[in-house]
Design a protein around this nucleic acid. Structure first.
Lengths: 179, 179
DNA sequence: CGTTAATATGCAATTTTTTGCATATTTTAT
DNA sequence: ATAAAATATGCAAAAAATTGCATATTAACG
């Protein structure tokens, strides 16, 4: 289980509340790690119980209390240890491909619609990533070198999405010449 | 949840035991749907309770009994209905990218080793897929048209793996010019 | 001014997945 | 011949993720 470790990677550089972490997940790891707010709040609770993180309560007037989490020494050690272990192979479960595999049970038009809907999502994701890439290129050498590793994860997203879209072209060509 | 539906896609064309299904998963859906034998046996049990599938016992001498599962009418309907619904977006959790994102906490050499180990896996996967693609090309028109949709899922695998490897080149170049 | 949407936090029940165990046969290697 | 590995089936406990609910504030819209 590495939601724990993803949270720690985000907390390591900066303390924050559950909601802060949710936002960081969406903004920074969104393309390769998805976590719901329930998952995050729950995980923070058990990580605190396990002594990996600590929190201080930010008592805001009127508003509900915010727990600002920080890494503990034990958490840091655990993170470093995880980073040094080989990670288990990524589990892939892609229902679109299951559907395509069983597509003979289905109307070609329905299949085509589904692919096109997915294409929109992938197109959108790609254009966001390309924009971030552009912004990165305008940074100073120093800034760029600080962000070099996150930038490489972005590159993965970009190459992955381009490959997906190239595949979708093949699928659409096939499905449209099928009637 | 679509393990259920993946099983049904496999059972729809041919009845089989839990182990048969495990093998089909590995051989046919392995690149985009991963399921353990425990998951499959368990799922078959609940699907039977739900009336989606039925089984006959193949009483083998000495060997443990085999339950040969077949789709029921209700199962078929459920499958068709699922196929016609838009599938929820694929959940991605890629710990390698989390690790790379937090790679500043880590020795470059360790990171490089990890990437290279993954590269081997991806290389292997790609070469298996390319071989299957070659075999497909030698089939008759009729056979090819029957397998057209599974072939498209294979194409997804091939394009995806090529993109992964191209990305790994970028990462390795960066990491090796880093010392 | 009131409604709706977005921000922000969290609990509890259910579902799903993972891990660890248990068992028995057949095939392969030494 | 014997040991080890692969084949084949399954249960049960634990861990993790999902779903549904609950609440309260702030911002935006008409």
């Amino acid at each position: 289980m590495s939601l724990k470790h993803a949270i720690m990677v985000l907390l390591e550089t900066e303390a924050g509340s559950g909601y802060d972490l949710l936002k960081r997940f969406k903004q920074r790891l969104g393309f390769f790690w998805q976590a719901s707010h329930q998952q995050i709040y729950q995980q923070l609770k058990v990580m605190h119980q396990a002594g990996l993180i600590d929190y201080s309560v930010d008592n805001q007037q009127g508003k509900p209390d915010r727990k600002i989490y920080v890494m503990t020494e034990a958490g840091h050690k655990e993170l470093i240890s995880w980073l040094n272990q080989a990670c288990k192979p990524q589990k892939i479960n892609d229902s679109l491909l299951v559907k395509l595999y069983g597509g003979h049970l289905l109307d070609t038009a329905v299949l085509l619609e589904e692919i096109q809907a997915h294409r929109e999502q992938h197109n959108k994701a790609l254009s966001i990533m390309l924009e971030i890439e552009q912004q990165y290129q305008t940074l100073s050498d120093l800034e760029r070198s600080k962000l070099a590793l996150p930038f490489l994860t972005l590159r993965r997203g970009i190459l992955g999405e381009k490959a997906w879209l190239a595949w979708a072209d093949e699928v659409e060509i096939f499905l449209m010449t099928q009637n």
